[in-house]
Amino acid sequence: MIPLFGFLVVHSGCGTSPKQYIRTNVNFQYIKKVAVLPLNNLTDDKYAGEKLKSMIVMNILESGVFEVAEDGEVNKVVVDVFREMGFREGELVALDIEGIKRISEKLGVQAIFIGSVESYGQNRGGGSQYAVVSLSLRLVESNSGLTLWRGFHSQKGSSLMRSIFGIEQKGEIELSNEVVKKVFATFFGKY
């Protein structure tokens, strides 16, 4: 009975850990202010990008490491810069170094967070339904366009312990907060 219980306890905590890359020999201290660009939404939820973005901004503010450019300002500047570069609304845009520089100059930031929401919603598996959230995020330096940090994490709302004990599974909102915290833990170093 005890080995079985032990197995359940251990397995319930098992899951994928966030994947990360951080550029070595970089002094992050010169980065005072950052911007979080609108996330690329690869899901069926129309507002998944906005929801995850607000969690990202909150986590950065909580960490106290950087100041964050205001959302409305970022959205307007991004639209203005893309328009100047000749892109039309609704067009898929690949952000190059030129675009990054222009956006950063207008916002007065030293680096920008760019990312995509790869999953946000309900999945089916093994006869049950569960929420899943996946986020990929990177920090790009404004002048050089170099990627300074990159993180990825995916998490689902179900677990063995929850299924066995009939505990309500985690929803998308709770999951998105956890995913963002874990992604940033690889950068800010807290867990």
């Binding site: 929801k51 607000s54 205001e70 959302d71 409305g72 300002e73 959205n75 307007k76 639209v79």
Partner: peptide
């Protein structure tokens, strides 16, 4: 859209209506 308001517009709002801060919210 209020989500597209930049700082210039917010400052204009603050000056015209004499307000110090603004609440911006979303119903998810």
């Amino acid at each position: 859209s209020v989500q597209m308001m930049d700082m210039e517009q917010l400052k204009k709002l603050g000056m015209r209506l004499k307000i110090d801060a603004v609440f911006i919210g979303v119903v998810e």
